[in-house]
Every structure is written in structure tokens, then in C-alpha cells.
Design a protein around this nucleic acid. Structure first.
Lengths: 253, 253
DNA sequence: TAGTGGTCTAGACCACTGA
DNA sequence: CAGTGGTCTAGACCACTAC
């Protein structure tokens, strides 16, 4: 089953064999792989070697281990598509936040909890919001859930000069959300920019989003600009990569 | 150094301690961590436990192990920003492919190799290109390098009905690239859509892009539509997440 | 209770790096 | 050459799951 003279590490050979069987359909999505003890016999290697092989597949997101149950082929999660060029004034007028609008499209039951605080702008925040480092910003921390499960973390930051005395500094921002309050205060949004990246989650993010090993996160930093190009808000979003796909669209000219 | 009675796995305690020292700046970017043998003494645990701790940090992308040298704090790579709403006809007229345009912005020396083949459309391709499964498509495989290093993989697919008899079926597409040839053939591009996701790389992608452990990839599927909304091309791109950030922009209304 | 994965030890040999 | 990480073994005990 494995070639101990090939020079290729045994755990890689075992991982490759399992991977092949999975892609060949021998083990289908949701199926249980043989137990570690059984693989020890089949491949003629030690337990650690088997566990290293499984570890590779876990890191790749191919399988998921469940304590006391077994190792299972990971079902490819259904992807939730988020169209990003749709934060129209019309949608806000219809009393939907961007997240709620997504929910309406996706057909899940949304809920979210918000925490508001104030802090001094760090280097990165100052750069995006074009303020001086140390300047006070309003921070809205948000945990978004779909059918009870956490699906998105969002941290919104605005220069406090724009939010003082408005409901943006309260947990409940009222109909239309924070953007509506900003517009009422005379700050009409002219354009949005989003910066999309990806990385492995921190342990905190992994537990908050209940990510299984081998799942990266998608990071989105959205900046909302006023019509005169003054930054009004930056929003750092964290999404589990196995559940989301972002879609953007633009005209050729 | 570690509490063997706390119930928290030892390797997690070791990992947490190392992570804390790194974020505290005790070990700066590029610094070498203590050797495994030294950690065995310091933490009073076995070598496997130390290696498991390091393995966690590697998966998180916090450190990089180099055989025979040591384990190093991973420097946060400089991010190459790609603005995605810039595939203008003007840019193409200036004889730059999208990749070359990015290169001009980023200041690196680009090179790429292309392979052309033909295949039958699979399910996914058929959906995006709105053709029948099995219909013949032209496939342009591309490996892009910056200063010699592979930085992007790209697979472009077009219905062969649009490419037959054109230079799109050749390796060298001529000035302006494939899009320019399509326009000459009467297929004017009306809009683009991009679908962005992220996942851990396959072993092949990891070695092709020389990814260190713990680096996810960003997947971008760009679809180019004709002015009458007929799909002309789909382009599956794979980018190392530690080197790229994608930027999109749109007007509020 | 039996079977599963999770954690951990002690020890060994190998491959790679750099002085 | 010494020091580093990479691989591997044999064996042990634990925590969780399901019957």
C-alpha cells in the first residue's frame, strides 16, 4: 500500500491514497473514512503517520475529524452568493440593511447583535478614514447570524465628528440603518470601495465562526465615501470562506 | 511554563505562549524561534508536543519552518493591490493585457507562459458560458510570473464558436490580447462579472505557487459578457492570498 | 462497553543548512 | 561538523460517541 523505499514520506503517500479514493468517489461526501487503527494495519505504518496523513487532508479542508465518531469526507457547503454592487439608496429606503437584503435573497432567518464603543484611530483606521491617528472614532461591533449560526463578523468605524448626536452612536440606529442616519445628517454617500483578501483565522475567529480546520476566512474592508470623496465609514468584515462567494460586476467602459 | 493540570492540551498552551510572545514583539518578523530541542527543555514537554504547537502556528500562517535552519516569524508580505474595475478598452488599446497593466502599477517584471487546448464543456463551464455541456471550448492555460516567481494561475475558456479562425486559438494572440481579437471579430464586451472565493490550495497549486503552509488561495472567476449579455469568456484565476488584495469600486447609485 | 479520535512520552534515524 | 527541522516507531492514557 505504501512504498517505504521511494523516498516519499509515508504520511504523504497515505494522504495521497486517501485523497485519490475520495476524488474517485470511493468515499463520498459525508462518508466515514476507515478508523485510524484500521489504517495502521492497511498501510502498515504507525499511528502518528496515519494521523499526519489525516492532518494534511484536514488542513486542505478535504475531511473533518469528529471526536469519538470518526473522520468524514467534508461535504462541499452550499455557497451563499453575495452581490456587492447593490447597496442602493432604494434598498435602504425599503428598510433593509445590506445584511438583511442578503438574507432576503438567501432565504435564511437573520439576526444580529451590536455593540457600540469609541476608540482612538490606529494607523490603519486613520489611513482608510483619512483622519489623524488618535482621532476619536465610533466603533460598531456586529455579530451576524443566519438561522442562529454565526456567519459574519463586522466592525464598522466612523469618525466621531460625523456621528455625534445621531443614532449612529446607539445600538438601534432606526429604519434604514446607519447609512440612512448619515444621509439625514447631510452626508450623502457617493461611492463604495471594497478591498478583498483572505487568510487563516485567528483562534478567536475560528471559534466564533465555528470554522472547521482548514477553512480560511475572507476579509472585506468596505469604505463608504461621501459625494465629495471624504471617507465616512470603513467596515471590516470577516466571512467563512466555505460559505461565501462575493460577486462584483461592472460595465466594460 | 505550562500547566499540566489545567485540562488545556499542552501543545495549545505552548502555541498560545509563542503566539503571545510574537504579537508582543518579543519575536519580531523574520526572527528565529528557539529550536525544538530548546523548547522541549523550556516547556518541559516532549518533542511531538512542541512540533504540534509549531504546527498550529504554521497552519495559522504565523510562522514558517525551514529545514535545517529553524522556525521563523513570518514577515507580513507586502500586498499587491489589484484594482478590478480597470479593464478598459483604452488600456487594451495601449497593448496591455490585464496582467501587464497590473504589472505596470506594481513595478515588477512580468512574464507568462501560455498553453492552448480544446475540451468539452463540463457542467460548471456550461453554466457560466451558457452553452450545452459537451460543447467545444477553447482553453487558454496561463502561468504568470513576477520577477520570475509564479504569482498567478489563470485558465480561460471561450466557446469555440467565437474563437475559430482567430488568433485566440494561438499562443500569441497579438497586440491587445485575446479581448482585442474578439472585438475585431465583432464581439464587443459589454460588462464583466467576478466571483471571488477562497480555499486552501491543492498540493499541485501549493507547489506551483510555492505557497508556504497556512496560505490560502483566492479564487476569482471572471466572466466577460458581450453587449447583448452573451457570455464570451470565463477566466478562473488562482492567487496566493498572502500577496494579493483585490479592490472593487462602484457608485452609490 | 467498545470503538473512535485527542494527547503525550521517549527514543531513533534522516535530510538539510551553515560555519 | 554541529545544529536544525522532518519522519517514524511503539506504546500509553484520556475524552467523546453510540449502542
Amino acid at each position: 500500500m505504501v512504498d517505504k523505499t521511494s523516498g516519499v514520506p509515508l504520511h504523504r503517500q497515505v494522504a495521497a491514497d486517501l485523497r485519490r479514493r475520495i476524488t474517485a468517489g470511493e468515499y463520498a461526501a459525508g462518508d466515514k473514512l476507515p478508523s485510524e487503527r484500521l489504517m495502521i494495519e492497511r498501510y502498515g505504518v504507525s499511528r502518528l503517520t496515519v494521523r499526519e496523513a489525516i492532518g494534511l487532508l484536514r488542513t486542505e479542508g478535504v475531511v473533518i475529524a469528529e471526536h469519538g465518531r470518526g473522520v468524514f469526507v467534508r461535504p462541499s457547503a452550499k455557497i451563499q452568493r453575495l452581490s456587492r454592487s447593490r447597496l442602493s439608496r432604494a434598498a435602504r429606503a425599503a428598510d433593509k440593511s445590506a445584511f438583511l437584503a442578503d438574507a432576503a435573497t438567501g432565504g435564511f432567518t437573520p439576526s444580529s447583535s451590536v455593540h457600540v464603543r469609541f476608540e482612538a484611530a490606529d494607523e490603519r483606521t486613520a489611513t482608510y478614514l483619512e483622519v489623524q491617528p488618535g482621532e476619536e472614532v465610533t466603533v460598531r461591533d456586529r455579530v451576524m447570524r443566519a438561522d442562529g449560526q454565526v456567519v459574519q463578523l463586522s466592525v464598522s468605524r466612523l469618525p466621531r465628528t460625523f456621528t455625534r448626536g445621531t443614532k449612529v452612536e446607539e445600538v438601534e440606529t432606526g429604519p434604514g440603518g446607519a447609512y440612512a442616519r448619515l444621509e439625514e445628517a447631510g452626508h450623502t454617500i457617493g461611492r463604495y470601495a471594497e478591498h478583498v483578501g483572505s487568510r487563516m483565522p485567528t483562534p478567536e475567529e475560528a471559534s466564533a465562526l465555528q470554522l472547521s480546520q482548514g477553512t480560511p476566512i475572507i476579509t472585506v474592508t468596505r469604505v463608504a465615501y461621501r459625494e465629495d470623496d471624504v471617507p465616512l465609514e470603513m467596515n471590516d468584515m470577516v466571512l467563512p470562506a466555505d460559505r461565501y462567494e462575493l460577486s462584483y460586476e461592472w460595465a466594460a467602459e
